[in-house]
């Protein structure tokens, strides 16, 4: 059970240097980790109509909207540095970028309050309610 003894350190000082990055939650799995010309292909072709956004990706129509991080919360993109060779060693992640808003996209369906990601944003607030100290 030695793997339970290893920890993942979050290098908090990296937050200061981390740039703001636009983040998009896409309604498809893209088998790729790495660079992409998001600004050139995606952002440049996105159409804004009030809150609602539309764009296409790989020929499919997407509809999206921007949502904010819950109050008191920050969006972080963590990146592992110096990945260790074994699962018994401690790992380190740093903050590579930060965000306070994200855009999520549905395949063809206009964004609405039943979207799972919108509902998931209830969680931090409710977690606070579950876990706040009980008064005597």
């Amino acid at each position: 059970m030695s793997c339970n003894s290893s920890v993942i350190r979050l290098c908090a000082s990296s937050v200061g240097q981390a740039p703001q990055a636009p983040v998009h939650l896409m309604p498809c799995e893209i088998e790729h980790n790495g660079p992409a010309q998001v600004n050139q292909y995606f952002t440049a072709t996105t159409k804004d109509q009030k809150q609602d956004k539309s764009v296409s990706f790989r020929g499919r129509g997407l509809k999206g909207q921007k949502i904010s991080c819950p109050q008191g919360y920050t969006g972080l993109v963590l990146k592992e540095i110096n990945k260790p060779g074994s699962d018994q060693e401690d790992r380190t992640v740093k903050v590579s970028s930060v965000f306070d808003k994200m855009t999520y996209w549905n395949l063809e369906t206009p964004p609405n309050s039943d979207d799972t990601i919108v509902m998931a944003m209830d969680w931090p607030d409710l977690a606070e309610a579950i876990h706040a100290p009980v008064e005597d």
Binding site: C28, I30, A36, Y41, T45, S56, R58, G59, R60
Partner: peptide, 26 residues
């Protein structure tokens, strides 16, 4: 990643075939 600009018809098999072999899977 993106396949083609919107000038291309993604629904054509020519485009699909090229993306299947040369672009990342989506």
């Amino acid at each position: 990643v993106f396949g083609y600009p919107q000038f291309v018809r993604f629904s054509w098999s020519t485009a699909q075939t090229l993306m299947d072999s040369k672009a990342v899977n989506v």
